[in-house]
Design a protein around this nucleic acid. Structure first.
Length: 280
DNA sequence: ACTAGCACCTGATCGC
DNA sequence: TGCGATCAGGTGCTAG
């Protein structure tokens, strides 16, 4: 579910509500909720105080008043919500952090999300090291990112979703960025001019910041912020989930194709099929 | 060293 | 009403 704008919305809510708070009690209610197994590592954070909440791409972490960090990923359906202590348990409640009068709850229907404890080096958790900077990161290196795209031997949509090339983009914003760039999702990366890659990165960054400005994209109750509120970018989507609808630019019917085990939505007129798809 | 494919889950929806 | 197939915002392992 959540891509960079949604995760950043959650991060801001967490920063607002729990920085300075202490984990008075931690209850793990589902074994898959905690990453590399250990429930013990998570519960060992009892008594820790939250100093900051950070993010790279779709990974979140809590900086604490101790050397370890609490790392989290929302997967497809993870949520962090702040609830009064006496609120009834949600159906998919996985971890409860008691803060005082309130609780921080980690809820996750599909259990692809996880929380875990690890060490950090230079402010980056070990488990996040393999993730490239996202375009909102002050350390984002545009030239290096472009050459990582160009050194791939695959379709551009796969490269956009590769969090080791550039992080933050998921299936929604990949399709939206490709539409804005008038680029077919199956365009081969090795054929792309530097200028085209730069345009694509700019468009991905712009569509994500527009989404962030309205709290992200919510199709249903699976994505909400820490206060349980939805985002409003769904109404601004040009192609994602718009199969059969008219392209906002030319009116042609939006198509959906499946590859890499997921759907890609595009306008067949604005984003024509690349003339040669490699050598077949 | 790479890339593509699939596994990991729960739940909603659609066609028969 | 029921049942199987398909789909859903992501990541990581592993077989080539």
């Amino acid at each position: 579910m959540p891509e960079l704008p949604e995760v950043e919305t959650v991060r801001r809510g967490l920063a607002e509500h729990i920085v300075g708070k202490k984990f008075k009690k931690i209850d793990v209610l589902h074994p898959r909720a905690t990453s590399p197994k250990s429930i013990a590592a998570l519960t060992s954070l009892t008594g820790a105080r939250v100093k900051a909440v950070a993010r790279r791409g779709k990974f979140l972490w809590f900086e604490l008043d101790r050397p370890e960090v609490l790392v989290g990923h929302l997967g497809m359906s993870g949520q962090f919500v702040i609830q009064p202590k006496n609120a009834i348990d949600e159906r998919h409640l996985r971890v409860r952090f008691t803060l005082g009068r309130h609780e921080l709850r980690f809820i996750d229907q599909r259990t692809f999300g996880w929380l875990g404890v690890c060490e950090a080096k230079d402010g980056i958790p070990n488990w996040v090291e393999h993730i490239a900077a996202d375009p909102f990161d002050p350390n984002f290196d545009l030239a290096k990112t472009i050459s990582r795209f160009q050194s791939k031997r695959t379709e551009i949509k796969r490269a956009l979703l590769d969090q080791g090339v550039m992080s933050g983009v998921g299936n929604i914003y990949a399709d939206e960025a490709l539409w804005r760039s008038k680029m077919h999702p199956e365009t081969r990366t090795e054929k792309l001019a530097t200028k085209r890659v730069a345009e694509l990165i700019t468009n991905a960054t712009e569509v994500m910041s527009e989404a962030l400005a309205v709290g992200g994209t919510s199709f249903d109750e699976l994505y909400i912020n820490v206060n349980g509120e939805s985002g409003y970018f769904e109404r601004s989507l040009a192609v994602y989930g718009q199969e059969g609808e008219g392209c906002p630019r030319c009116g042609r019917q939006i198509r959906r194709i499946t590859f890499a085990n997921r759907s890609s939505h595009f306008c067949p007129k604005c984003q024509p099929t690349p003339r040669s798809n490699g050598n077949r």
